[in-house]
Design a protein around this nucleic acid. Structure first.
Lengths: 233, 233
DNA sequence: TGTACATCAGTGAACGCGCGTTCACTGATGTAC
DNA sequence: TGTACATCAGTGAACGCGCGTTCACTGATGTAC
């Protein structure tokens, strides 16, 4: 374990990245099912079997892309939320910023969005490594509620959830580092998150075509509703 | 154009149905990408080229399956809604019944649900024939709001939408036979529909795994929220 | 510093697979007179 | 009612394609003494 990186190590890291980049490019062209190891290798001027030095199978490559995509989306949301906060925005402003960032990421990265939230690829089972990065996405929104609550900006009201929901809310709290947050606050934020997700998902799958399309106005309206649902406005 | 159906016509109708049935079975096994004309033909004891007498291409077969699925789901929702109504249920009860019917249809028909609301199949573009059947699904919910409004059970309140949204609401009204319904009522029902859809979609894509799973309790909670959003409770 | 050996990246051929679609054809069913 | 012709369903072979993965191999890079 030398501090310096050998030529081999550097080459390996670079090629691994290049393989993922090219795979992402193909993803964007033809979707997850169109992702072919042979085509990736061809594009990189390698022989297809050489890829197996980097990823043991097609599924492992897909998993790497999924983890990267969750993290890219998580970063995008965190950045939007943080910069709204840095420029003096309220929790509601942070939610607005993150919500719009989610929508525009979905629109600019449709195949990566589909990889995360679309139909599961047949025969592919997401391994546990994806759980934590996946949580960053709802997390980005729940953390806004958490901060607002700690700042005293979030009233605790609404009916007390029953036992099942309280337990599940505690599980969410543990997974997403929301300790101290009342269950009802968590659940109201989850409610808002599902609304947000539904709006993005419906637009993404084309269900707004011919009616709410372009959906900018409706999306803005939906975000305001989310704020009321979460208790942020 | 004889009133009687010839043996040929009967055979053709039956075989067309059998092809779709077998295709649906394969859809359930391996998803839309796994749907193969050759495999369908094999299973029916035909030669693959014979299918071309019934469907001019794989895409046309897919389209037929999509239209059928929208109609099956639409029928399911209509039935749930109508029987809640027939047994004296309020509009809220109808919404509850239809919402639970949507969720359980999605759970029992995951691949058909995916066909309708999952990742678009690469290279497949849904033709216009799907628009009307697709509208039946949100329609089933908006019609409940319409009936409630006509019965005077639905208060018209909430901020007046801006021009863009008003126009889009009118488009929805035209497409779904909601004439007379105020725009704000339509939009509030759409808000509730996106919430409902978001909850189903998140559960379906496994985003509730390890947290809100099983989601029965959360779903019931979400439905009550939808009722408040739509103005039905 | 130089040598011997171990590790690893990349090659090229091969295995075995399935797919959508076309086409010329045979034989059965339907129709018009 | 019977015959001649048209329509249609289904056959079987073929075209041309791409895929994931394995394996024995060569040659370069790294490491230990």
């Amino acid at each position: 374990m030398p501090a310096h990186r050998t030529a081999r190590e550097r080459a390996r890291a670079e090629l691994t990245a290049e393989i993922k980049d090219e795979a992402r490019r193909q993803l964007a062209d033809s979707g997850a099912n169109g992702l072919s190891l042979r085509a990736v290798a061809r594009e990189l001027g390698m022989v297809s079997s050489a890829l197996y030095r980097y990823f043991p199978s097609r599924d492992e490559l897909l998993t790497a892309l999924i983890v990267d995509a969750y993290n890219a989306l998580g970063d995008t949301l965190d950045t939007a939320s943080a910069s709204a906060s840095a420029s003096g925005g309220s929790p509601a402003d942070r939610w607005r910023a993150a919500a719009h960032a989610l929508r525009s990421w979905a629109r600019t990265h449709p195949h990566e969005y589909a990889l995360l939230y679309g139909t599961p690829v047949p025969g592919y089972r997401a391994p546990d490594d994806t759980i934590v990065p996946a949580g960053r996405v709802p997390g980005a929104f729940l953390w806004i509620a958490r901060d607002a609550w700690h700042a005293g900006d979030l009233p605790v009201n609404g009916a007390e959830p029953d036992d099942t929901l309280r337990t599940q809310a505690r599980t969410i709290a543990t997974a997403l580092d929301l300790s101290g947050l009342p269950e009802v606050v968590i659940l109201r934020a989850v409610d808002a998150w599902t609304q947000l997700f539904g709006t993005v998902a419906l637009e993404f799958t084309g269900q707004f075509a011919n009616t709410l399309d372009p959906a900018d106005a409706y999306f803005a309206r939906a975000v305001e509703l989310q704020l009321r649902t979460a208790g942020l406005a």
